[in-house]
Design a protein around this nucleic acid. Structure first.
Lengths: 134, 134
DNA sequence: CCATACTGTAACAATTTAAATTACAGTACA
DNA sequence: TGTACTGTAATTTAAATTGTTACAGTATGG
């Protein structure tokens, strides 16, 4: 969530869900106000995870691959953050009792925090999110 | 959590809690394997938030300012992340229905996610965390 | 009262990571 | 066959983070 990809992905999915149409990367880019290549990069990840389908060639673009009420925001979060841990670590001194063990304990803590976050996000579907747009 | 300061702060607090002594920044730095000035920077934040007290001059250093069972990991997280939002935003096109509204909705979502994370961290005290060290 | 060993902090430098851009081959349509 | 796209790799640029240096201020003990 701490990179902009999550915001970009949610923006794309929201557009696709609300319009229900195939949209081209230049069109989507115009809404987000970024470069079309960035949109295609994001679409590439979303396609890999089954959220969207894309069509090449003239008149091509992207559309949702499944109903918006079957896409959890937590799934999108997971897709973008992959296995990345929610937190950085030092390289402490292994000759110190604390230094030797702390990274294991921090990793465990980060995992718990991440689970709590994902759990919260799993309570909202893309459809729920889209309902907020008037 | 996505900067290393949280890991550094927890390391410092763990050392202070476990030893129960005044420790100097060079000593602490030796355990974390970073520069003493970094430790002092972190201590400066921890002092501002009332977690530690420090002594200047020869023989100086830092110690916990209150019992480890009265320090929640969520408090430390808040102290370090201050008001920083857990997520970035684009600068979308205001002429687009989605672009115009999405940042407000993402901010709301980030807040919820952040609360869930803080809630989880509030279940562990520094004392609990220290118990894990054998 | 001076040498020593610290803290506190600002200024600066280096490094790392993230983001954006460019480029171009491949594909589909009309 | 021209046009308008996608897909992706390579590169560049920018931003954020992390680390370093430097030095004034402070406490201690001989």
């Amino acid at each position: 969530m701490n990179n902009i990809e999550f915001a970009t992905a949610i923006h794309i999915l929201t557009l696709l869900a609300i319009t229900g149409e195939y949209l081209s990367s230049p069109y989507i880019a115009g809404s987000i106000n970024i470069n079309p290549a960035m949109v295609r990069k994001s679409l590439s990840v979303l396609r890999t995870h089954g959220f969207v389908e894309t069509r090449e060639g003239k008149g091509g673009g992207a559309a949702l691959a499944k109903p918006a009420d079957r896409i959890l925001l937590s799934d999108v979060y997971r897709a973008i953050n992959d296995a990345a841990l929610l937190g950085k670590l030092n390289k402490p001194n292994p000759d110190c009792k604390v230094g030797r063990q702390i990274n294991n304990h921090l990793i465990e803590l980060y995992k718990q925090a991440d689970h709590a976050l994902v759990n919260k996000l799993s309570m909202t579907t893309l459809a729920d999110f889209c309902k907020e747009f008037k």
